[in-house]
Design a binder for these strands. Sequence first.
DNA 1: CACTTGACCTGTCCGC
DNA 2: TGCGGACAGGTCAAGT
Length: 301
Amino acid sequence: MPELPEVETVRRGLDSLIRGWQVTGVEALNPKSFPVDPDLVPRHLAGRTIQGVGRRAKLLVIALEQGWNLAVHLKMTGQLVFREAAGMQPGREFGAGHPSDSLIGRLPDRSTRIVFSLAGPAGQTAWLYFNDQRKFGWIKLLDDQALEELDFVRTLGPEPLDAGFTLEDFRLQLARRSGRRIKASLLDQSCIAGIGNIYADEALWLAGIHPETRVAQLDAAAQERLYGAVRAALQAGIDAGGSSSRNYVDAEGRRGTYLDFAAVYGRSGQACRRCGQQIIKIRSAGRGTHLCPACQPDPAC
DNA sequence: CACTTGACCTGTCCGC
DNA sequence: TGCGGACAGGTCAAGT
């Protein structure tokens, strides 16, 4: 579910909430969500202080002391939600300030798979809930080296929002996939890291490119438009606090608003915001794919 | 090599 | 109201 903007939104919120806090315990309600050598938890997790929260593509990395990390993949329906013990934070009890934004209530609930208990620098008590309706997500306790050696991490392509990711880098990535369709390439995490189904559709609409276009058919101008469109779509997603069509929430349990601004995703049958034509939905790269047939003409036609 | 399908799971929505 | 099927933002393995 969560793509780069959603994971980045969680990362920012979580980093400010739990940096400097101590992990005091963990309870695995669904052991498959947190497969770990039981020897490692007491040695490298219990009592450890959180150094910060990072992100690589769609992977959250909670850095602990001495080079250990909790790597968290939310997959389709994962949530990582921080809750401070009631009464410890006057006025900030869940839902108090923004009931219309809230999506989840009491925790743990039936989707809760893992619960970390935390202690704050001033003696506060809180819990970090890993909720995951579909149980696809996972958390692993890994040292820095093991994290880098994960196949999932080793094969990741460049981060599209990094200042160092240039148009030339993008052209090089595309050149290695000239036979493929552009939507499949955008979803390929070894091409560019962090794009998922929503932002792929949005970027292709912004650039005026049909998702089934072969990469080799994109001329220099189209490549440049798409480079800008990918970055703009992802940045817009972050600015909106992510997108919530189903159950994405940030670290404090709030929905994102990006889908209110989306041009094509989830809008089939509605009018294109640019030309008024009806948005259609097709299947590309095995995924539901939304596009404007006028703004994104089929290359086969 | 490129593409599709199925698997992992649970929940929701839509049509009958 | 109930029931079956399709579908859901991600990845991975296996098959064509």
